[in-house]
Design a protein around this nucleic acid. Structure first.
Lengths: 233, 233
DNA sequence: ATCGTCCCTGAATTGTTGTTCATTTCTTAA
DNA sequence: TTAAGAAATGAACAACAATTCAGGGACGAT
């Protein structure tokens, strides 16, 4: 054989793969999941449409991997915030506010990943994504309940409900229209976090304290990317 | 002119229109919104595909009308249940449990109307549907707050969150898998209703009482159609 | 009965996207 | 420099579903 993949080529191939995923992510963030089509993504990555198929077997695989990536990043973020909290209840509060702020920071992306009309072949990826975040919340609720900070409950159901509440109120089509204003935004996050904690059984006064503690005083890095940075080739 | 639409013809036309909507509804209930395509619906209504276009200008219009119909019925149902309650808080509890039970009674339909991947031209109808139900809950929350039964709050946000919680936990892809068992089902509804009431600020003990009162002791007519009966031609 | 009008039919058309593949362009080792 | 193999290209293809329309049938008035 007179040809072998050299290191440089492999690097270039890997970079191109990342570029495709990045192009897909940018497209989704700007125009929604429906706009993530092979031709536009390829154009954005500055390659031909056919080339995409040298890196991903199908569009569904591409989108699935995109969703998995974003989901993993979000989960890491939530875990990190929760683990840094002093106790189980604070951890739950931190997890809730982190989910809320992440969702608000990338509303279109979050909407695309969670709920936007999408190809049937990616439902699995989306489902895994939801399952993962619900499982995280569920374990936090269960931990707090074990510690005696919450009444006993079916954490699987309440965790799912909690996630649904956050998403519906923040990224759904009926979310308030004034998320640009940081003050309003902060208020919304607080309202929802308070509601979530009350919902799982935290007494009102204590919930208020936890929320005040958990929501960052300002939300500075909203315009940047708390959830994940699109990587450019 | 040698032809005029007689009464009988107009009745037949109207019946056929209803048959198309009914066929669409049945299809959606059985196989999801994605399966609501012109050809299958027409076949079910026992007419040719082209005939559908004599009654509806487009598939989007057909589905929009279907969603509006179902939404209106659901809203009526919820209003009725809430209005029959003795007070504002009971009304809220009744509204919540009614929504939950309706959703469970027609999970596939509810999922299709609320969240399933769907054509972009029907987002308006779906949005109106959500807005309507959220507005209803919002007004109930506001009424209860005005009466001093709930702490002051941004009812718009909490209402949206509440709806999201119910839907995510009951009709979403992560809903528990044992909805066949009426006991489990009842338990799930109670759990969620309790959580919802706590979330908007009802004290735990009182919330429990309201929930027990609001959830019908049995859920007998689940297999029939609490939400709306598909009309056959 | 029959004519004018409307209604129904369903095969063909249209439009949109994901996917393929023959060809071209690059890359490597001899 | 060159030949073998890999990667990239992008126009053509395929699949699917909404929509159209020319022709046939049904209906109402005369």
């Amino acid at each position: 054989m007179v040809y072998r993949r050299t290191q440089q080529v492999m690097r270039r191939l890997a970079a191109r793969r990342r570029a495709i995923l990045a192009a897909a992510r940018e497209t989704a963030a700007e125009q929604g999941m429906a706009a993530v089509q092979i031709a536009p993504v390829a154009a954005r990555a500055e390659i031909a449409a056919g080339t995409v198929y040298r890196y991903f077997p199908s569009k569904a695989e591409l989108i699935s991997e995109l969703i998995s990536d974003i989901s993993r990043e979000q989960l890491d973020h939530v875990r990190q915030a929760a683990d840094a909290a002093p106790g189980p209840l604070s951890a739950l509060a931190a997890a809730v506010t982190t989910i809320a702020i992440d969702a608000l920071s990338h509303r279109k992306l979050a909407w695309g990943i969670l709920a936007e009309p999408i190809d049937v072949d990616v439902v699995t990826a989306r489902l895994d994504c939801r399952k993962a975040i619900v499982a995280e919340i569920e374990s936090r609720i269960a931990a707090a309940a074990r510690a005696g900070h919450l009444p006993p409950q079916d954490a699987g159901i309440t965790a799912a409900a909690l996630i649904g509440a956050l998403h519906e109120a923040l990224v759904g089509p009926l979310a308030p229209d004034n998320l640009d204003d940081p003050a309003k935004l902060r208020e919304a996050v607080q309202t929802l976090a308070l509601m979530a904690l009350r919902g799982v059984g935290v007494m009102d006064a204590r919930a208020r304290g936890l929320v005040v503690q958990a929501v960052p005083p300002i939300v500075p890095e909203l315009t940047p990317q708390p959830m994940a940075a699109p990587v450019s080739a």
